[in-house]
Computed example of a mutant assay.
Amino acid sequence: MFTRPDTRFYKAAGLLLIAAAAFVIATLVLGGGPAEAETVEPVAAGTSTATLVIQNVINGLAFGVLLALAAVGLSLIFGTTGLSNFAHGEQVTFGALLTFFLSTNEQVTIPLVPGSFTIGLPLWLAAIIAVIVSGFTGWLQDKMLWGPLRKRRVAVLQQMVVSIGLSLALLNLLQWWMGGTRHRLTNASGGRITFGNFYVGTLTLMSVVIAAIALAGVALFLLKTRLGRATRAISDNPALAAASGIRVDSIIRLVWVMSAALAGLGGILLALFDNGAGFDSGARILLLMFAAVTLGGLGQAFGALVGALVVGVVSEVSTVVIAPDMRYASALAILIIVLLVRPQGILGRKERVG
């Protein structure tokens, strides 16, 4: 299922370019003026609709890359186990909140532990520790929960219900730990880089570069390493992979570690992009992550990137003509439209049924 992009990719890309062009043109025609956008940087009054659309495309591409980093773990897990993990959003939240916990100069507490204290690590060091700890939580989940469920041959549907329960439990645990307020990882504005009438925030650009490097690392892992090829083999046919001598359970555990670490890193970068994170930040974008994975093709790691870029651009550009609170609905509407044309997703393959 994790295959190299081929002619299907270029055909799908052409279809998406046509759809995106039609969407942008419709936005330019219908947009009488900019909506009160919920952007990181406010747009100057009197900005033309065309300028606003292009600026939102830039914002959407940035958001799409960061969303892809958070969503690729979902695709890896589905590809190797068939499980739709509804607790993945909390993994995204955990990375951001743990980074805040380790780096803030405010007093912090741990539930059931008396007293408060300050850690105050540099942000970069706190982020590295948070990613490592996030990866460990992935190992712990598979060791204590998902591995035993697989050994007992629990059906994927039942495992999905377990993931929903785990999501609710973790959501309440995160609220108990960090409260219901949003937390900013840094108070520095970071400034912004302007080019003509357009701009990109320095923190946003830094986040996108880090995310792009991480995504490139995942691609190289899947295409160029023995473990990556084993991961793709398990995704294609677990029984045949096991018969070939591949230790399926070990590879799946590695996938869980990678998925959790990537989700944690995605949560950190999304918190920098969105100027903060709350206990429900991951849960709020969980449907967008599922949309990106489904749009790109279930189980397709490269498809998750393409799907996330589409979701990011559509959700941001749509704020020109609809209220910002409805922007995610527009992305889900595009998902429905594309799947009506291509049910297997952008990079998915048609499969014989029956």
Rank of each mutant, 00 (worst) to 15 (best):
G307S: 11
Q175K: 10
L240V: 15
G64D: 01
L205H: 05
V131M: 09
F9Y: 07
V108F: 06
T204W: 01
S315E: 03
G165R: 04
I58W: 07
V310Y: 01
F94S: 00
G33V: 08
V113Y: 12
F302K: 12
P5E: 03
E106S: 15
R182P: 03
V29M: 11
T80M: 12
W176Y: 06
L309V: 07
G32F: 06
G201Q: 08
V156C: 08
Y328L: 13
L332H: 00
L15T: 11
S281H: 00
S163Q: 05
S189R: 12
L227Q: 01
A211G: 13
R8W: 00
F117Y: 11
L339T: 04
P5L: 07
G147Q: 13
V53S: 15
W124Y: 10
L220C: 02
R8F: 03
L340S: 14
D6I: 04
A211Q: 03
G282S: 04
P343T: 03
L298G: 02
E106Y: 04
R247H: 11
L61F: 11
L173C: 09
L168P: 05
L272V: 08
N85K: 13
W146C: 02
V293T: 00
K151Y: 06
V255P: 07
G348C: 11
N59Q: 11
A291Q: 01
G190S: 09
A70F: 03
F273Y: 14
I337V: 14
G31K: 02
S250F: 07
M206S: 11
V57N: 08
T49W: 02
S207P: 05
V293N: 02
M178V: 14
A292S: 06
L272H: 13
S189T: 09
N237I: 00
L170R: 11
L171C: 06
T104E: 00
L295E: 04
L97P: 03
M1G: 14
Q159C: 09
G115V: 10
V113R: 10
L102K: 00
G266A: 13
S315Q: 01
A45E: 15
A87D: 00
V161E: 01
A263Q: 07
T104S: 06
T27I: 14
R327L: 07
I336L: 14
Q141C: 11
G138N: 11
A331E: 04
L340C: 09
F86Y: 09
A155F: 07
A333R: 06
A35L: 10
V43S: 00
N187M: 10
L295S: 03
L66Q: 11
A50S: 11
I213D: 07
A126R: 06
N56G: 03
G228I: 05
A96T: 02
A26L: 09
G89H: 09
E316A: 06
L171N: 12
G179N: 04
R4S: 00
V338F: 10
A68P: 05
R342T: 15
T137E: 07
T80L: 14
D236Y: 04
T181L: 10
T49D: 02
L295C: 05
Q159M: 15
L347P: 04
